Simulated scan of single mutants.
Amino acid sequence: MTHPAVVTATSLVVGYGDVQVCAPVDLSLRPGQSLAVIGSNGSGKSTVLRTVLGLLAPVSGRVEVLGRAVDERDRRFRAGVAGVLDADAYFPGLTTREHLVLTARGFGVPEAGRVVDEVLEVFGISHQSDTVPEALSSGQRRRLLLAAGFVRPRELLVLDEPEQRLDVRMRRDLAGLLREETARGGAVLYATHDETLLRETGSPALLVGDDVSRLVAPGEAADLLAAGL
């Protein structure tokens, strides 16, 4: 049985206002699939993700998520799409654990405390449960941001260079988490510069650039990253 696409982009032009930042994008991402977005710095990777998340309007073309035009105000969109970008964002005054419990409860997660404790352990920050985010190291804050995406229900997980500020071991663990995400039927769309993460997830990739944006097979995508694109 073929499942409907979680994300569909058709002749999608992304940018700011009417300023296009890369060649038009076409993609289809279904449940149980992951897709990396790769390209040189400034090529438009983050802009593609922000457009899928509804934070930027398309310059032209169309993007649909969960079968509908993207609207971050839509209840189903907000319930089904988890995005982790590159900016630190926390609830002021809350500890690491309190931040995650509030996030989980806000999305109706049963036994939110137990789920949060498991995710804190997975991301290696359980010993920082009672620490406020501002007192964490840069790498620990990155782990907390990623953990916030994993404590809530989701059909689509969107990650912008999730490997940033993570050590080698955590990057490998993250690859395993993304494989588990697709194995349970979730869809993952992520931008990356990390060749190892790409190889270990086995993801095909969308290569974005000024002249052309095209889909590439997993092996070719990792080779492109290894060669510096």
Results as ranks from 00 to 15, higher is better:
residue 22 C to D: 05
residue 66 L to R: 11
residue 147 A to F: 13
residue 132 V to Y: 00
residue 101 V to H: 11
residue 100 L to P: 06
residue 70 V to N: 04
residue 151 V to H: 10
residue 89 A to R: 13
residue 134 E to W: 13
residue 54 G to A: 08
residue 135 A to M: 09
residue 74 D to H: 13
residue 68 R to L: 03
residue 43 S to M: 07
residue 118 E to L: 09
residue 56 L to C: 03
residue 114 R to Y: 13
residue 42 G to M: 03
residue 103 T to W: 07
residue 135 A to L: 09
residue 90 Y to A: 02
residue 30 R to F: 13
residue 33 Q to F: 01
residue 131 T to E: 10
residue 81 V to Q: 07
residue 145 L to G: 14
residue 50 R to Q: 10
residue 89 A to C: 06
residue 80 G to E: 09
residue 122 V to L: 14
residue 88 D to V: 06
residue 100 L to Y: 12
residue 85 L to Y: 15
residue 97 R to P: 06
residue 127 H to K: 12
residue 100 L to W: 13
residue 123 F to M: 04
residue 148 A to V: 04
residue 95 T to Y: 11
residue 144 L to R: 07
residue 23 A to Q: 06
residue 125 I to R: 09
residue 152 R to N: 10
residue 140 Q to D: 12
residue 149 G to S: 08
residue 26 D to I: 01
residue 54 G to S: 04
residue 32 G to Q: 05
residue 41 N to M: 04
residue 132 V to T: 14
residue 93 G to N: 07
residue 139 G to H: 06
residue 77 F to T: 05
residue 56 L to G: 01
residue 99 H to Q: 15
residue 55 L to K: 10
residue 83 G to S: 05
residue 42 G to K: 10
residue 151 V to W: 08
residue 143 R to T: 06
residue 113 G to R: 15
residue 59 V to Q: 00
residue 78 R to V: 11
residue 41 N to T: 03
residue 22 C to G: 05
residue 43 S to W: 15
residue 149 G to D: 00
residue 103 T to V: 14
residue 79 A to P: 12
residue 111 E to T: 08
residue 140 Q to K: 07
residue 43 S to N: 01
residue 94 L to K: 14
residue 55 L to W: 12
residue 29 L to C: 09
residue 129 S to I: 02
residue 26 D to E: 13
residue 61 G to R: 07
residue 126 S to H: 13
residue 92 P to Y: 11
residue 81 V to F: 11
residue 60 S to M: 05
residue 63 V to L: 08
residue 104 A to V: 01
residue 128 Q to K: 15
residue 127 H to Q: 13
residue 127 H to C: 07
residue 42 G to I: 02
residue 143 R to H: 04
residue 33 Q to M: 11
residue 130 D to F: 02
residue 104 A to C: 05
residue 139 G to T: 08
residue 88 D to H: 14
residue 74 D to V: 05
residue 78 R to K: 14
residue 52 V to E: 05
residue 38 I to F: 05
residue 151 V to S: 11
residue 151 V to E: 02
residue 81 V to Y: 09
residue 29 L to R: 05
residue 113 G to S: 12
residue 42 G to A: 00
residue 124 G to M: 06
residue 27 L to K: 00
residue 86 D to H: 13
residue 115 V to P: 07
residue 121 E to G: 14
residue 128 Q to I: 02
